[in-house]
Every structure is written in C-alpha cells, then in structure tokens.
Amino acid sequence: MNQIFDFTDYGELLGLVHNSIIAGLVLGVVGGVVSMFVMMRDLPFAVHGISELSFAGASGALLLGVNVVAGSLLGSLLAAVLIGALGARARDRNSIIGVLMPFGLGLGVLFLALYKGRSANKFGLLTGQIVAVDTPQLSWLLATSAVVLIGLLIIWRPLTFASADPETAAARGVPVAALSSVFMVLLGLAVAMSIQIVGALLVLSIICTPAAAAMRVTATPHLVVLLSVLFGVVSVVGGILLALGSSVPISPYVTTIAFAIYLICRLLGSRRTAGVG
C-alpha cells in the first residue's frame, strides 16, 4: 500500500489541482443530471459509442497540435448527431453505435500511434489526468456545462414526459423526435467533458452509474436527480482527492467509488422491496 499511497506532501499537492477539483465538482453535477435521462431513455450503450468518437477527436487534435478539448467536443457532437439522426428506433440505434464504436476506437489508436509526444498525454485520453485541467480547459468545461444545464432546463418537462412515455407524449403533440435530437447533442457535450477527467474508457461511471444507483433507492424524479448529482460529485471529487496521494491514475478511484455507491444503493433498494413485500 505504501507504494500506491503517499500523503506526505498532500497539502502542497492539493493546491496544484484547484482547477481539477472545480472541474470535478461541475462534472459531477452535469453527469448526475444527464445520467437520469440516459437511464430513462435506455442510452448507456450510446454513451459508450459517443465516447469512442470523442476519443478519436481528442487523439486527432493531439496529433495535430490543436486544442484537445475542441477535438473531443467535435468528435462527441459528430457521434451524437449520427446516432440521433440514423438511430430513431432502439434496434437501429444499437446497430449504428456498434459500427461507430470500433471505428472511433481504431481511429483514436491510429492517431495516438502516430503521435510522437509525451506518452502521458496518450494515456491520459484513455484513463484521465488529475493535473491536466488548466485554466483554458476549465473555461471550456464551465461554458460547456452551462450550455448543457441550460439546455436541459429549457426542455426538462417535455423531455421527461417523452422519456417516460414516448407514445403518449407523441400523441399529445410533444415533438419527441426533435427532443431526442436535442438531447443527443447535449449528451455528446457532457460525454466530451467527462473524458477530460476520467478518460474515454470509463466515462460510463459518470454519465450512467449515478442515476442507476439513485433509481435503486427512489422512484421520485426530483429525488433521483438530487441523489444522482450527489453521487456524481462524490465519485469525481472523491476520486480526485484519492488519486492526488497515489501513483495510480484517477479513473480507477472514480469508478470504484461510483460502483461502491451503486452496490450500497442496490442493497438498500433490495431491503426496501423485501420490507414492502
């Protein structure tokens, strides 16, 4: 354990990750809110598909020496638009994602193989980097977060209705298809943000796990959102604080905390169901 953890200079190191902690806090909030709709709309597989093209976009930007965040956003938006436009039905959507995932991952691996810079930059795109959030990246993240949260706030009620009962919503004149396309774009932005912290491979821990855990202990939408945000913040910020005193990348800590929360919620949910029965 001494080879993994070393909190000797923890106080000094804490000052170096000020931006990362702010980014983690914001990302936990955005991920927690978005994850509720991801679970309601059965889109975890789509999240993974978007993350692969986001990884390809970030890798391409790294190779070209341009803004990695912009490349990640471009890849995510391209994937989100393609999935939203071509995958109206769940079966079609899964087929499109199944095609995009290996293509995006392969393209990203190709770009990283051609990149001759620091290996830490390559590894960070896959597993995240704790000290990689500088002031310009934080500004990008805050601006993107504002777009996602404001967008969700605007479409919240009709999107909730369309996610819970799309057939009835469509019959009552709710623009279900348009809402789906808008949400896919917002989801793409959220995925691109998450990759900056936990990397492309483990983004599901932020975009899916918080709401999956919250839904185990309550069915009330407002409580699901609040708990999901809480779980997301605890997972990301807690992962950053643990990784700061460790030689292990941040992503294992984020995913482990998120998984532990899910297991606890699942246990509590099972006991509540057994008590009611």
Rank of each mutant, 00 (worst) to 15 (best):
V69K: 09
L13C: 12
G75T: 09
S95D: 14
V81I: 11
I22C: 12
S95E: 15
V30H: 09
P44C: 07
G15N: 03
P44R: 03
G24P: 13
A113E: 14
L82I: 12
A70P: 14
F7V: 06
K122S: 04
N121P: 10
L43R: 05
L73C: 12
A120S: 07
G124K: 00
L107W: 05
L62R: 00
L110D: 02
I22Q: 12
A88E: 14
M36W: 13
N19E: 09
V30K: 06
A58G: 08
G98L: 06
I22E: 11
V29Q: 09
V81R: 12
L100Y: 05
L13D: 13
K122I: 01
L100W: 03
V68L: 06
D42F: 14
V33W: 03
F103H: 10
S35G: 13
I97W: 03
G106H: 06
R89H: 13
G106D: 06
A132C: 02
F103R: 10
G28H: 06
Y115T: 00
G31N: 06
G104Q: 03
I130W: 04
V68E: 01
S51V: 05
G57W: 00
L77N: 09
V68N: 02
G124M: 00
L125G: 01
L82R: 08
R91P: 15
K116C: 06
I21M: 11
H18M: 15
S119L: 11
F123C: 02
G87R: 01
R91Q: 15
Q129K: 10
T127R: 06
H18I: 14
F45Q: 12
S72C: 10
F111P: 06
L125Q: 00
R41G: 10
G28D: 05
Y10K: 05
L64K: 12
S72R: 03
S59G: 08
F103L: 11
L25D: 12
A132P: 04
I97A: 08
L73K: 10
G49V: 01
V26Y: 04
L25I: 10
S51D: 07
F103P: 11
S72T: 05
R89C: 14
F37L: 07
N67A: 13
M36S: 15
A113C: 13
G108W: 00
S76H: 08
A23F: 04
N94Y: 11
G71A: 05
V99Q: 10
P44M: 05
L74K: 10
L73G: 12
L126N: 02
V29G: 08
E12G: 15
G11F: 14
G98V: 07
V17S: 04
G71N: 04
A23W: 03
E12F: 15
V109W: 02
R91G: 15
H18L: 15
I130H: 04
I83W: 04
L82D: 10
L126K: 01
I22N: 14
F103D: 10
